[in-house]
Amino acid sequence: MSWFLMNRKGEERKKKEEIKKQFMKAIGKDASDGKLSRDQWTNVLIAAGIHNSTEEVHKSFETRVLENGRLSFEEFMGEESRAERLFKLMDKDGDGFVTKTEFREVCKNLNREQIDLAFKKFDQTGNDKLNFREFCDMMNKRTNSTKKGSETATANPSNSSSHHAPAQ
């Protein structure tokens, strides 16, 4: 590899590291869900010294289907998100769905009843499979339930995180 190409890769790596650094600062202040809005991303890129920040942010937001109009670091950088990696891991046959059987193979600590409850709650199409959106809804619900802590579970046992299969 030429010196020129090696030097460019080093520059790109440094830019990415600076963006990540500014992203971490921003989520520490404003984003408990690990995602930032369009305006927050613009501020991250400006703080990282990236030119044409507003245009870059608009391009990133236009090319993605957004949940709540926010993007994680991976989503913004065009990398596979943690949710996408986990979904692919569970989707053994690569058909774009996670079945109860596939889910059970990965989540061995959950019993059949817990998996059935999770699918009943998050399988919006009723096909006994989770598509990526349903899977993300389930994972986000688990994350939100976990963050709310035990006060939710003790305040309303019928709504506790123990009913969300992934939280077990």
Rank of each mutant, 00 (worst) to 15 (best):
W41Q: 08
A155D: 08
T146F: 15
F122A: 03
N144D: 13
M138D: 06
F103P: 04
G126F: 03
T54C: 00
Q124T: 14
E113A: 11
P157I: 11
V44W: 00
T54N: 13
I27T: 12
E80I: 00
R104E: 02
K88F: 04
A153K: 05
F119E: 08
L89F: 11
N43V: 05
Q124N: 11
A153L: 02
L71V: 13
R70C: 12
R38Y: 04
M77L: 02
N68S: 11
N52S: 15
K21C: 07
F122L: 09
K120I: 08
K29T: 08
T54L: 11
K108A: 07
T146P: 00
G78I: 05
K129D: 04
R82W: 04
F87C: 12
S53Y: 02
S60H: 10
R142L: 00
E151I: 14
S32E: 13
E17T: 10
T99Y: 03
K15L: 13
F135V: 00
R82L: 08
L45H: 06
C136E: 14
D123M: 11
K20T: 03
L89S: 04
N127Y: 02
E84C: 12
F135M: 07
N43I: 05
L36N: 02
D123T: 03
D93C: 08
Q114G: 00
F122G: 05
Q124W: 00
R85P: 02
E151F: 14
Q22H: 06
N156G: 00
R38M: 07
E56N: 06
K29Y: 14
N131S: 06
V106N: 09
N111S: 05
T146K: 14
F132A: 13
